[in-house]
Design a protein around this nucleic acid. Structure first.
Length: 619
DNA sequence: GCGATCAGAT
DNA sequence: CACATCTGATCGC
C-alpha cells in the first residue's frame, strides 16, 4: 500500500495521490488511478472548500480515472475541477500561487501504467528536471524501452528522480508470471469447469477494486459469455468493458460480491444469491486471484493452485515483480529513486539501499553535470556487456545501452541544482549520490543471474490470441478502458517481446477435470493433476517457456483438520498448503547484511571493479 | 453523528 | 503469499 506522502521534492507545489494534510496547499493535484489508498483526503470537506475559492487548482488524471472517480457520489463534487488528460500527450500546466501570482510551468505526460483501468504514470518536465511518478504499475520487461515519451529521439531522457511503486522491489518477488500466462491458466481452469454442464459455474473471488476487468474481458471473449458483476454503472461509458459484464445472474462466470460471500460459497451459493437454475444444485468453484511469486531460479511454477475441495488460487498481480522493476530502473537510470511502498518485512533503509544500486553512477553523473557550457547532449557510454554471469537472457537483450539526452538549457540547470542538493522528502531517504557516499555500481545486477538459463530463441510468432492489452488502439475518444494496459503505442521492433503466448490450451489429460466432488483422484504425492502446457511458443524472457502453463496442485491431506466437503461427502483437506508453493527464498536472494554493504561500498570507494561481486552472496 | 485511526478479516 | 478494501472498535470532537 502506498505510503507516499503526496509530494515530490522537485515540484513541491504539486500533490499526487494524497490530498490531506500539507497537500491541502497544492497548486495542482494528480490522481494516478482510482484505488482508495491513493485517494486519501480526496473526499475531504477541507479540500472541497479550498476548491470553491480557487480559480486555478485542478485535479489531473486520465479520462478513465475521471469516469471511475465521478461514478462514486462521494467524489462527485470534483466534477468541475477535474481536467482529464489524454495518454501520451504532453500538456503544459501552470502552477499558480493564487496569493502572490507567482507561477511555474511544468509539462506533464501521462504514461500507461498497466495497474488498473485508467492507471497512469506522470512524467513531469520542468525547470527542476524530469521526474517520473510511477503511481502503481505493472509493466512487462522491455516495455519501458518502448515508451516514447521517456525518450527524446533515440535517447533516454535524463530522469532526475523516480517516485517508484516498490511493492515488489525485493528479490523474494523475483518473478511473477506474466499477465498472459496467468490469464491462460485461469482460462483453462474456467473452460474445463464450465464446459461440463450448464450447472457448473465459476465464482471469481475478486477484491473490491478495479483491475480485474481485463480478466473479465478475456474470459468473456473466450467463452462467449458475460461475467456477472454487482453493478455496471462505472463502466457505462466504457463499452469495451461494458459488453463483457452483466447483472444478469444467468451466466456461468460470476465476479459478484457480497459482504459474506465466503460464507455463501461454503454453502454452495453464489454471492448474488444464485443457488440453482432449475432446481439442480449449482456446481461452484471459486477462483481467487492472488499474487504468486517465484525466486530467481525457481523453474517450477504454477499459476493455479488448488486450495480446497472447490477452491483455487490463480496468479494475478497488479504490480511489477522485482525483475520487472529492475528492468525498468536500469533502463532509465535516474539520479534518485524514492520508494512509495516498503515491501512487507523490509525497512525503508533496506529498500533505499537496494534502490541506490539502481541509480545512476556518481561518476557518470559528475561527467554529466559538469560538461562544458554549450554541450547539451551526450551519448552514454555503451553499457558494458555483462560477464558470462549476465542475466541478459532474462531481459531479452533489452539492455541496449540507453542513451541520454538533455532537452534544453533550463533542464541542465535543473540538473545542476537538484543533484547538488540532497534534500529529503517526507519519509523517504534521499537517494542522491553525494561525494560523501560511494556511488553504487550500476551493473551490480549483472551478477545476479546464475547463468543457467536456457538459451531459447525469441519467438516472434503470430499471436493466436492477444491479451486485451494488445488490442489495437481504436483511438476512440475518452474514456478509453485501454488506458488500463495501453502498450499499443509501443511499436518498435522489440514489440515482439510482448507477444507472448500463442496457445495456452493445455490439454487436461485423463480425468483431470477438476471435479472436486466425486471423481477426483489424489496422487500419492499429493499432486492430483498436472496440466501439460503448450510451452513451445513462449518467449524466453521469463521462465514461462520451460514450464507448463498450468499446474494444478492438490494439497496433501495433512491429517490434521479434515472435514467433509462436497456433495458426496469426500473428505478434503481444510487448510491447504501447497508444498510446491511454499516457495523458499532462493539462496541468492537474501537481504544484504550491513557488513556486506559496507564491503561493497569500500570497494566502490576504492575504485575497484565490483561487476563480478554479488553483494548478496559475498561471504 | 461524523471522521480518523487501528486491528482484523478476506 | 502480502493487494485493496471493508467492518467494527475506539477515540475525539
Amino acid at each position: 500500500m502506498s505510503s507516499f506522502a503526496g509530494r515530490m521534492k522537485e515540484y513541491p507545489t504539486i500533490s499526487l495521490d494524497r490530498f490531506d494534510r500539507e497537500n491541502l496547499h497544492a497548486r495542482a493535484y494528480f490522481l494516478s488511478h482510482c484505488h482508495k489508498d491513493h485517494m486519501k483526503g480526496l473526499k475531504g470537506p477541507l479540500l472541497k472548500r479550498k476548491l470553491q475559492f480557487s480559480r486555478t487548482v485542478r485535479l489531473y488524471c486520465s479520462f478513465v480515472t475521471k469516469e471511475l472517480l465521478l461514478n462514486n457520489p462521494k467524489y462527485a463534487f470534483w466534477e468541475e475541477y477535474i481536467v482529464p488528460l489524454e495518454l501520451e500527450s504532453p500538456t503544459q500546466i501552470s502552477l499558480v500561487d493564487e496569493a502572490s501570482g507567482e507561477k511555474e510551468e511544468v509539462v506533464v505526460t501521462l504514461l500507461p501504467a498497466g495497474h488498473c483501468p485508467g492507471s497512469v504514470m506522470f512524467l513531469f518536465e520542468g525547470s527542476h528536471g524530469n521526474v517520473l511518478y510511477t503511481g502503481d504499475f505493472r509493466l512487462p520487461v522491455g516495455d519501458v524501452s518502448r515508451m516514447e515519451h521517456l525518450h527524446s529521439g533515440s535517447r533516454v531522457k535524463d530522469i532526475q528522480s523516480i517516485y517508484l511503486d516498490s511493492t515488489f522491489y525485493d528479490p523474494r518477488f523475483y518473478q511473477i508470471p506474466s499477465r498472459e500466462v496467468c490469464l491462460s491458466g485461469i482460462s483453462e481452469l474456467v473452460g474445463n469447469w464450465i464446459s461440463q454442464s450448464p450447472h457448473h459455474v465459476v465464482w471469481l473471488n475478486c477484491k473490491a477494486a478495479y483491475g480485474y476487468e481485463y480478466l473479465f474481458i478475456n474470459l468473456g471473449e473466450e467463452f462467449n459469455t458475460q461475467i456477472h458483476v454487482n453493478t455496471l454503472a462505472m463502466f457505462k461509458k466504457m463499452p469495451e468493458i461494458l459488453s463483457y459484464v452483466t447483472t444478469d445472474r444467468r451466466t456461468q462466470i460470476h465476479a459478484c460480491r457480497h459482504p459474506k460471500d465466503e460464507e455463501f460459497f461454503q454453502g454452495n451459493r453464489l454471492p448474488c444469491g444464485c443457488t440453482a437454475a432449475d432446481g439442480t444444485p449449482l456446481r461452484i468453484i471459486s477462483i481467487k486471484p492472488s499474487t504468486m511469486w517465484f525466486g530467481e531460479r525457481t523453474k517450477k511454477t504454477s499459476v493455479i493452485i488448488k486450495t480446497g475441495g472447490s477452491s483455487y488460487r490463480a496468479c494475478f498481480s497488479f504490480h511489477s515483480s522485482y525483475s520487472e522493476i529492475k528492468d525498468f530502473l536500469s533502463y532509465l537510470q535516474p539520479v534518485n529513486i524514492y520508494p512509495s511502498v516498503i515491501p512487507i518485512g523490509r525497512t525503508l533503509t533496506e529498500v533505499t539501499q537496494m534502490l541506490k544500486l539502481m541509480c545512476r553512477k556518481q561518476s557518470d553523473e559528475a561527467a554529466f553535470v559538469y560538461k562544458p557550457l554549450g554541450v547539451l547532449k551526450r551519448s552514454r557510454v555503451q553499457r558494458p556487456t555483462c560477464d558470462s554471469e549476465s542475466d541478459d537472457e532474462l531481459f531479452d537483450g533489452l539492455d541496449v545501452a540507453p542513451v541520454r539526452k538533455k532537452l534544453g538549457v533550463q533542464k541542465v540547470e535543473g540538473t545542476l541544482e537538484t543533484t547538488a542538493l540532497p534534500v529529503c522528502v517526507e519519509e523517504s531517504l534521499p537517494l542522491t549520490i553525494t561525494d560523501a557516499q560511494p556511488a553504487a555500481h550500476n551493473y551490480v545486477d549483472c551478477t545476479e543471474s546464475n547463468g543457467e538459463e536456457e538459451e531459447e530463441e525469441e519467438q516472434q510468432g503470430d499471436e493466436e490470441k492477444v491479451g486485451a492489452g494488445q488490442l489495437e488502439d481504436i483511438s476512440s475518444q475518452p474514456p478509453r478502458w485501454e488506458d488500463f494496459f495501453t502498450t499499443e503505442t509501443l511499436t518498435d521492433s522489440q514489440n515482439s517481446l510482448r507477444s507472448q503466448p500463442q496457445s495456452y490450451c493445455s490439454e487436461m489429460t485423463g480425468s483431470q477435470t477438476p471435479d472436486l466432488f466425486s471423481d477426483e483422484e489424489t496422487a500419492p504425492d499429493g499432486f492430483s493433476l498436472t496440466l501439460s502446457g503448450s510451452q513451445s511458443n513462449h518467449s524466453s524472457q521469463n521462465m514461462d517457456s520451460c514450464l507448463p502453463d498450468t499446474l494444478i496442485i492438490q494439497p496433501e491431506l495433512d491429517g490434521q483438520k479434515q472435514r467433509e466437503e462436497g456433495d458426496d461427502g469426500i473428505i478434503q483437506s481444510e487448510s491447504q498448503q501447497s508444498s510446491d508453493f511454499d516457495i523458499p527464498c532462493t539462496p541468492e536472494s537474501k537481504v544484504p547484511r550491513r557488513d556486506e554493504l559496507s564491503q561493497l561500498y569500500r570497494k566502490l570507494a576504492a575504485g575497484e571493479d565490483i561487476r563480478a561481486l554479488d553483494y548478496r552472496t559475498e561471504h
